[in-house]
Amino acid sequence: MSISTAGVLARPDEGTAAARATPKSRKRRLPDLRRWISPIALVVLWQVASASGVLPPDKLASPVTVFGSAVELVADGQLGSAFLVSMGRVLGGFAIGASVGVVLGLLSGLSRWGERIFDPPVQMLRTLPHLGLIPLFILWFGIGEQPKLALVAAGVAFPLYLNLHAGIRQTDPGLLEASRVLGFTGVERVLHVVLPSALPQTLVGLRISLGAAWLSLIVAEQVNADAGIGYLINNAREFLRTDVVVVGLLVYALLGLATDALVRALEKRILRWQAR
């Protein structure tokens, strides 16, 4: 993933039925176990390097140590509470960013005046790498929770806005015409024609947004966190506990994967009309 996720507008072929069909048809087959050979070999190599002293523990702890620390951190509740704090930041920031992105996307997608007013500034701001805004956010909001929420919100709002807006603009004019001769009211037209047709693109935006949310969180937690996964990692660094650092990174990775799976499940449910 690039650093400036805010500026990413998914390629149009992404998220189409064709693009989704490939992994779906592959899922039916048994997983190819041969694909696990090299990852497992790497972990074994890592373990050997650690055990033989080639890889000193203050640079990178061994897989066995990492696993042991993970069990410990879970058992004494440290990981759980850090997870909850980080999760809270992502959810809070996401809620703010998604609200802003969706409201502005709807306003500028559904109304010409909304577009004239909101689209130019958003299109200009999207070129800023939002992670670069940290210094400003610290000046504006201090070093507490606010700049972290603000950074996550900024990462979420842009991709959602851009994809929702583009999705609405792509509505098939033929369907809009048909809805006119069928006597749809304006509300019916938005509800049954415009918004459903914008939904696939919006879900692509949602997936990008969530990726940006986690990335923003990781960066934000590097800045003076006193709780959360980032705090766990930074604290461990001070004591050269590379095992704990790796555990923290693994949690970040798992959370990213989990949210992606969540969106995929959501897509499958919402876009089931695309199944042929």
Binding site: G174, L175, S179, F184, V193, P196, S197, W273
Partner: peptide
């Protein structure tokens, strides 16, 4: 009106396409 292309809403079931509006 019926057009050359059916212009159905793909995300609404067939009966809803008929009755919407």
């Amino acid at each position: 009106v019926a057009f050359q292309q059916p212009r159905l809403l793909p995300w609404r079931r067939v009966w809803r396409n008929v009755s919407l509006g």
